[in-house]
Design a protein around this nucleic acid. Structure first.
Lengths: 232, 232
DNA sequence: TCTTGACAAACTGTATACAGTTCGCTATAA
DNA sequence: TTATAGCGAACTGTATACAGTTTGTCAAGA
């Protein structure tokens, strides 16, 4: 293997794969063969397999016995569930953050992400700032488990390709998001736990309801797998 | 390998390992070598490694690079976090369960677990019934993700050995648990979503507060790892 | 007595070989 | 033209060999 300086090969492959997935090198539902990835990263199949097993444990890769692995494509019902769970987890996080009396640096960091999102040149940049905002709240709340969980959900979400109908009203949605982020930071700074929790909850719930509208249903019926909602 | 009829060897090892861990075949913090487990299950090291990687992804096994694996021992702060997250997730679950209009069979199943817990001959049996009760609510709520998450937290919790001080007031605690379970099922049957959510939340929060009392602190300080609270 | 360094055993991590399965293709028959 | 059986390529899953790392032990020196 080439240029492996840090950590194990298995770890190296997992990181590379994660990065490549987020960079859009693979299409959702694309087949990921151990041999192909081994060649791609110049390693043997063993660490590739281990990386795939880890990612499939996180739901990012779908594994079929004796058949292979493919990049997961998040479905609308799945995304709704993710929003539902995030609403609860990030609610806990923001409450804990305020309870612990956040350092000024944290507020500053959050304001920075708000600013970055406002100044984003495109949706990609906006999304990055958005993710950093939500993750920062989790990272500073004092919980060891919540950041990992939420981060995983955010990565999972990226495997759902935004469809044109959603992008249409992005601009309106966009400004709303920025305002809401600002209000959340204000509440955190003021130490208003309940308010922050309510605002953050509503903020995430809004995104979920937009999605639910899209498929014309009130609750996510989980279990039913839908391969694709959009024609490529 | 011997008597492998269903699934892959890797899956077989994972299941066996999980069962053996729950059956107390290994002590928390006990070293789990790939070679030892390979001999134990009559397989090669490869599937053992894969199983260990999966379990370490779930937090049930601690992995150290180039050093090895050991059975995780849940700490009090960790357990507090788990209760906190379970409170939120199971809250969602019970709300969804009621919203979906649960079938009579579900109520019957839950009552069965209440009864089983009441009639349990010892704490082990009581705990099994308890777990089944909480998991059933998750399994029937229509979510695909929540049951897996909660189940994982329940397994993780078992790696914390109950200490004598906790067991002392088991009897009192025990009857309280039974009563609370009954009340939760009543609320579900009556379709009172908010009430059920409140009762279930309080039920889990009580256990968390008991733990917090034990270490004389209000919030879980996450991050700090404590190896053992009890002398063996 | 305590520290330090070298050695050796034990084990992890990776590569590779091989066995077993899946799946698509093609040829044959209805 | 369509259905089906059989074949073969491609890939997964497992075992094993080997390289690399860690860790404990023991002896030498301060």
């Amino acid at each position: 293997m080439i240029a492996k300086t840090r950590g194990s090969t298995s770890e190296f492959v997992r990181m590379k794969l994660l990065k490549d997935i987020q960079d859009g090198c693979f299409l959702p539902s694309e087949r990921l063969t151990t041999e192909g990835l081994a060649k791609r990263y110049q390693v043997s199949r063993t660490p590739v397999r281990e990386a795939l097993i880890q990612l499939s444990q996180n739901g990012l890769v779908d594994a079929t016995a004796n058949s292979g692995y493919e990049l997961h494509r998040a479905t609308v019902p799945e995304l709704c569930e993710i929003y539902e769970i995030r609403e609860a987890l990030e609610g806990i996080a923001v409450a804990k953050l305020i309870e612990s009396g956040p350092e000024p640096g944290v507020i500053k960091e959050l304001r920075g992400y708000c600013e970055a999102r406002r100044n984003a040149a495109n949706m990609l940049e906006a999304n990055i700032a958005d993710r950093k905002f939500h993750l920062a709240i989790c990272h500073h709340c004092g919980s060891a488990m919540i950041p990992d969980l939420v981060n995983n959900y955010l990565v999972l979400s990226t495997t759902f390709n935004l469809t044109p109908p959603l992008l249409v009203d992005d601009y309106v949605h966009d400004r709303k998001v920025n305002t809401e982020h600002d209000a959340i930071v204000d509440a955190i700074e003021a130490g208003k736990g309940k308010l922050a929790q309510k605002l953050l909850g509503a903020h995430i719930a809004f995104a979920r309801r937009e999605l639910e509208k899209l498929i014309g249903k009130k609750t996510s019926p989980a279990g039913k797998k839908v391969r694709s909602y959009v024609t490529q």
